[in-house]
């Protein structure tokens, strides 16, 4: 399957994420949109890594079973970091709700003053 498809899918996912972050006010939905953007990037990384591996493995011969798969390593890192980020972010949202009884981000503009 041509790599274009993956790219289009990833771009669409990413744009949905961006638009979601920009338009929604609910902190949890914004959070989910951020996850969407992260995973769009993950998808791209995996797709490119796979495509790259196909070429590198031919060039490297029998020894190149793992050649060109570095991108997939990044994906794991991103997933771990995203998991950590989610735990911290959700904790913030919980605290926010406890304090303001709302998860509306526009409500949090006190730093302006």
């Amino acid at each position: 399957m041509p790599i274009n498809y993956y790219i289009f899918l990833a771009v669409i996912l990413f744009c949905i994420g961006v638009v979601g972050v920009l338009t929604r006010r609910n902190a949890i939905i914004i959070f989910m949109c951020i996850e969407l953007m992260l995973n769009a990037v993950n998808l791209l990384l995996v797709a490119f890594s796979k495509a790259h591996h196909a070429v590198a493995a031919i060039n490297a011969g029998p020894a190149g079973t793992t050649a060109g798969t570095d991108g997939q390593m990044f994906v794991f890192f991103i997933m771990v970091v995203a998991a950590a980020e989610v735990s911290v972010g959700l904790a913030i949202i919980v605290m926010m709700y406890r304090n303001t009884h709302s998860v509306d981000v526009n409500f949090l503009n006190r730093l302006k003053h």
């Binding site: 920009l22 006010r25 526009n106 949090l108 503009n109 302006k112 003053h113």
Partner: peptide, 14 residues
């Protein structure tokens, strides 16, 4: 520009 609206910050970033 510093309105305190998170949405605007993100928009600027984008």
């Amino acid at each position: 520009l510093q309105s305190g609206q998170v949405g605007i910050y993100v928009l600027l970033m984008v």
